[in-house]
Amino acid sequence: MSSSKTPIVIGYLMKIIALVAVIAIMLLAIGVEYFAITQIAKNLSSIITGTSKEDIVVKDVLKSLDIVLLGVIFFTMAASLFELFIQKIDSLPDWLSITNLDQLKAMMIKMIIVVMAISFTGKIITWDGETEIAYYGVGLAAVIAALSYFLLVKQEEK
C-alpha cells in the first residue's frame, strides 16, 4: 500500500468506527425510549385508576420524564457524532448542529444538568424529612457548579 493512500484508509476506518458507535448509541436511545413509554403507560394507568397516592404519581412521572430526557440525550449524541465524524446532516435544527467536540461536550453538560435537576425535584417531592436530602442537594449543587464553571471557562476561551 502506498503512503499516499494511508490517510484515505485511516479516514474510512475512523468513519466506520464512528458509525458503529452511532448505531450503538441509537439502539440504546431506542431502548431507553421504549422503556420510558412503558413507564409512562403505567403512570397513566395509575393516574386514571387512582391506585397511587399523589406524591408517588408525581415521583413516578418525574422518573419517566428523566428517562425520556436520557433517551433524547442519547439521540442527540448519536446525531452529533454522526454529523461530527461521518457526514453533515442538513435537516438538523441549528441548536443541534455540532462542528467540534467542545460544542458536543457543552450540549451534553447542559442536558445532564437538566436531568439532574429533574431527578432532584423528584427526591424533594417524595422527601420524608430525612437529613440525607441536604447532603444530596449540596453534592448535586457542587456538581452543577463545577459543570457550569467548565462551560464558562470554555466559553471564555473562544
Rank of each mutant, 00 (worst) to 15 (best):
5 K>A: 11
6 T>I: 15
7 P>T: 15
7 P>Q: 15
9 V>T: 11
9 V>N: 08
9 V>K: 11
10 I>E: 12
14 M>A: 07
17 I>D: 14
19 L>F: 12
27 L>E: 12
28 L>V: 09
28 L>T: 10
32 V>N: 06
33 E>I: 12
36 A>F: 05
36 A>D: 04
40 I>N: 14
40 I>R: 07
43 N>W: 07
44 L>W: 03
49 T>N: 13
49 T>I: 09
53 K>M: 09
53 K>G: 11
54 E>D: 09
54 E>T: 13
55 D>V: 04
55 D>G: 01
56 I>C: 06
57 V>I: 15
57 V>N: 09
59 K>L: 07
61 V>S: 13
62 L>P: 01
64 S>M: 08
64 S>A: 08
64 S>L: 02
64 S>I: 04
66 D>Q: 08
67 I>A: 07
68 V>Q: 03
68 V>E: 07
70 L>R: 03
70 L>K: 06
72 V>P: 02
72 V>A: 14
76 T>Y: 13
77 M>C: 06
77 M>E: 05
78 A>F: 02
79 A>I: 07
79 A>W: 05
80 S>F: 02
80 S>H: 04
81 L>K: 05
81 L>C: 06
83 E>A: 11
83 E>L: 05
84 L>P: 03
85 F>G: 07
86 I>L: 05
91 S>N: 11
94 D>N: 15
95 W>Y: 14
97 S>H: 14
98 I>L: 04
99 T>F: 10
100 N>T: 07
101 L>P: 03
102 D>M: 08
104 L>A: 04
105 K>L: 12
106 A>W: 00
108 M>H: 00
111 M>R: 09
112 I>K: 00
115 V>K: 06
115 V>F: 09
116 M>P: 00
116 M>H: 01
118 I>H: 01
119 S>C: 06
119 S>G: 09
122 G>F: 01
123 K>Q: 11
124 I>E: 04
125 I>F: 10
127 W>L: 06
135 Y>M: 11
135 Y>V: 10
145 A>I: 09
147 L>I: 03
148 S>H: 00
150 F>G: 02
153 V>Y: 00
153 V>I: 14
156 E>D: 12
157 E>Q: 04
